[in-house]
């Protein structure tokens, strides 16, 4: 298959790393070549974070060219704009409908963005918006928000739900597994009609 490029962005602490790990391991389980690249460290402390997953017959660079992401998954609304330049002209965008106010705004050093929704709609006319945090709270724990998002991603990748669930079973501690599987299913169900 042609290499598929997926970029996941968000804010440190939101669980982007677990999501990209499960995505990449699902691709590996499907028998594809896959590379997953992420930046840890200082960025974890509430900074802007990015991880990149590429899978296909043969993958070399772990970094995705600018303008070449087939799917941009943003765990936070403003971050989608920040990383817009990574998205391919034909790429799709999945946006988690949550705002995390950066310290630069809450402390008054930089102005807030007042027209965020308009800008998002202009930049991503076909974006799928997902209120993952509300679904996660309904499921029972806001921290499984990332698996709600994984469920939504699953609709946009060529892997079966069963394959995703197999990866999750291997990756997530047993006592948290049912909660996360439920979060995944809900995220998958709520975004299913949005795609072909």
């Amino acid at each position: 298959m042609k290499t598929m490029n997926i970029t996941l962005v968000g804010v440190g602490g939101q669980g982007t790393l677990l999501t990209s790990d499960i995505l990449a391991k699902t691709a590996a389980l499907a028998g594809l070549d896959v590379k997953k690249s992420e930046i840890h460290g200082m960025a974890q402390r509430g900074g802007s974070v990015i991880s990149q997953v590429r899978f296909g017959d043969e993958v070399h660079s772990p970094i995705i060219h600018e303008g070449a992401s087939d799917l941009l998954v943003s765990f936070e609304r403003m971050e989608a704009l920040r990383w817009r330049h990574l998205l391919a002209p034909t790429g799709q965008c999945l946006i988690n409908d949550i705002d995390l106010i950066p310290i630069t705004v809450s402390s008054g050093q930089q102005p807030a963005v007042t027209d965020l929704q308009e800008r998002l709609e202009a930049e991503f006319p076909d974006a799928v918006f997902l209120d993952a945090i509300s679904i996660a709270i309904e499921v029972g724990n806001q921290r499984c928000m990332n698996m709600v998002i994984a469920g939504a991603i699953s609709n946009l990748t060529p892997f079966s739900a069963e394959l995703w669930q197999d990866t999750m079973k291997n990756r997530i501690p047993a006592k948290l597994l049912d909660l996360n599987l439920e979060a995944f299913s809900r995220g998958r169900a709520v975004t299913a009609p949005a795609v072909v």
Binding site: A43, G46, H65, H85, I103, V113, E123
Partner: peptide, 19 residues
């Protein structure tokens, strides 16, 4: 060199911060 479309003009920065 592909022309890259940026949409981050005027966005506040998001530096790492003490938890």
């Amino acid at each position: 060199i592909p022309v890259v479309h940026r949409a981050d003009v005027g966005l506040p920065s998001r530096p790492p911060v003490l938890c």
